[in-house]
Design a protein around this nucleic acid. Structure first.
Lengths: 347, 347
DNA sequence: GTAGATGCCGTAAACGTTTACGACCGTACC
DNA sequence: GGTACGGTCGTAAACGTTTACGGCATCTAC
């Protein structure tokens, strides 16, 4: 075991001084500091995290909770892998480590989180896939664990920072665009569970319809799983509707795949027989044919903003990141594709 | 702070007894054990992990290192999320937690891992995306950290457990199948980096050609990134070959997407103009048109095997999982699709 | 009735750090 | 030459657990 004790007696210095040297305290001469750092590097000494955590009550790690369930929006096609990168570049600046905590799909997310915080595995948390009413938020709030939510929530606990994709704006702009091309009967594919982004997306959709004086018709708001399968199902239901919509907007990136497939089975092609506007421009979207009209953003930059906003809410980082409690809607940029090329004559 | 000390004085019992009661030691009366457990549940006491780790030198968490880089085969998150589930069901049986350690793409994986093990964040590790010569293996071996590799390696360090998909068998069976349909000029898409699975896949491909008396032609072994983009590039290179192959086998699930796209751009359809056999049956594969011939496996069961094999190599679990040091090739089952329907007349 | 065994519990040390405190030395200043 | 002070370092306590050890009952067996 290569503890600080052995390092100290190898250098014939007290362990207190060694610790101060390693941690950059001012009250140690430059000469001994060099000696210590060299010896540490040579012998491969790194402070045991348990000892350090115990003493100073901080673990130096940030947790990022995701749900490994297959049905939750956002967890496919390398969305998270990109975000992690961004978060890590921020955390790395402060010698913090990121660990990802995948909640098993058969476990209650709040209960899972409870275990994590009780064991004090991490100093702060990023939670994703927020639900309309999310018990995790109340939990973290009452446990006074710093956290940020990737996704809004209706939960009325104390004021916490959040960052969310612009579901409302994206839905609205998609409808605007379709209306400009003459569409009036525009369907929407929304999630089937109570994940919060579904409500926000629907909100944007309804508001846009209202702007254009188009009545809201619940019959063409189709709930489906946030997956390829869900997209397929949406296609299926669209085809069986009596007064078939001429366009559809989707809340999740993978849905277009399934929808394309169902249309192809019916001998229809997107952009000619039905206008389609997807959500995020995933690497896959670029390879769809016809190309998908959707929305672009930088996952890495989202991760950076997420990390910085989290740190801003943590004691000890307030001066480095003075933005306070962040509530931010992440903008997305339209990517024109061929899937919404269909134009209708104005009635 | 709700430590064991407060819990003990609240019960008016010594903290030693409280600890023994919580940990299920035999030398505590049933009555006090009940009292302790009830009070702990009521006051929400959970042992501080740092204190416990420090004392018994074990963290009760297992790490799963993945690479968040975009170019590494096998790193699509729908793959890992499934595997995590399986690993967790095994670990959960023993009150172990899984944390995922995403290595930033701009950091050296071995160096990243070094930090993790030196800080003693985890008791054992699962590493993935093994390279032909993988310094992580030497590192873990010399640090005596129990680990299992998801993927083989040529690294000649001490004997370590591993589990790997049947790349060799899959490549071989794909070639067999194509040869049976009359193909003789069969291209292969292999990774462009030195990830080990590329060598194994190529091995299976060559061995199968040899079996059928077909000469190996390096000109139609195309190296490309393990991504949709790589698949697109393979399509591109195939089309520009002088003596165009009539079939192609791919080592990575996402490649088919890009390849399909490039073929479509050239007015060709998979299964009619070019036989295609992909790798893993991802959720996406089911929505490709024409459907992709590929190989199926259970991610969850793979995760279970991974977890059990890891535990088998850990001190204290040998009697529960007596399989010793596991070297296992994970079988995959053929899923017939339309993408290799093309049959050629025997010359 | 005594010896030994057993069941239950309290005491205290130990894990590897960090850090408050005080000690020591040298220098500067009056 | 004494005092004050800054720079450097050693000492020891503390963080929250677990566990070896010993002690006190109670019980069993002779």
């Amino acid at each position: 075991m290569m503890g600080i004790k052995r390092l100290a007696q190898h250098l014939d210095i007290s362990i207190g001084t060694v610790s101060r040297a390693l941690n950059g305290r001012p009250d140690v001469s430059e000469q001994t500091r060099r000696r210590v750092l060299e010896a540490a590097a040579e012998l491969g000494y790194v402070a045991n995290q348990s000892g350090r955590s115990l003493r100073q009550g901080t673990t130096q790690t940030i947790g990022f909770m995701i749900e490994s369930g297959a049905d939750t929006a956002g967890n496919s096609d390398n969305f998270f892998l990109g975000v992690f990168e961004g978060v890590q570049t921020v955390l790395g600046r402060h010698n913090l480590d990121l660990v990802v905590l995948p909640c098993p799909s058969d476990e209650d997310p709040a209960q899972y989180l409870q275990r994590i915080v009780a064991r004090r595995l991490v100093d702060a948390l990023i939670i994703s896939a927020t639900h309309r009413r999310d018990r995790r938020i109340e939990l973290l709030d009452s446990a006074r664990i710093p956290f940020i939510a990737l996704g809004r929530s209706q939960t009325t606990a104390g004021d916490h920072p959040w960052l969310d994709l612009d579901f409302e704006g994206v839905a609205g702009r998609a409808v605007d665009r379709l209306v400009a091309r003459g569409h009036r009967r525009i369907a929407a594919g929304v999630p089937s569970n109570d994940i919060n982004l579904g409500f926000v997306y629907l909100e944007g959709y309804r508001a846009a319809l209202l702007r254009h004086g188009i009545p809201y018709d619940p019959a063409i708001v189709i709930r489906a799983a946030s997956s390829e399968q869900g997209g397929y199902q949406i296609g299926h239901e669209l085809l069986s509707l009596p007064d078939r919509p001429t366009a559809v907007v989707l809340h999740y990136e993978m849905m277009a795949i399934g929808l394309y497939r169902r249309l192809a089975e019916a001998g229809l092609t997107p952009g000619r027989d039905l206008a389609v506007i997807g959500f995020r421009e995933s690497p896959l979207a670029r390879f769809l044919s016809p190309t998908l009209t959707c929305f672009r953003m930088s996952l890495r930059e989202l991760g950076i903003a997420l990390g910085e906003s989290l740190l801003a809410s943590m004691p000890g980082f307030a001066e480095t990141y003075p933005q306070g409690i962040v509530h931010r809607i992440w903008p997305m940029e339209l990517v024109e594709g061929e899937s919404d090329a269909l134009r209708l004559p104005r009635a």
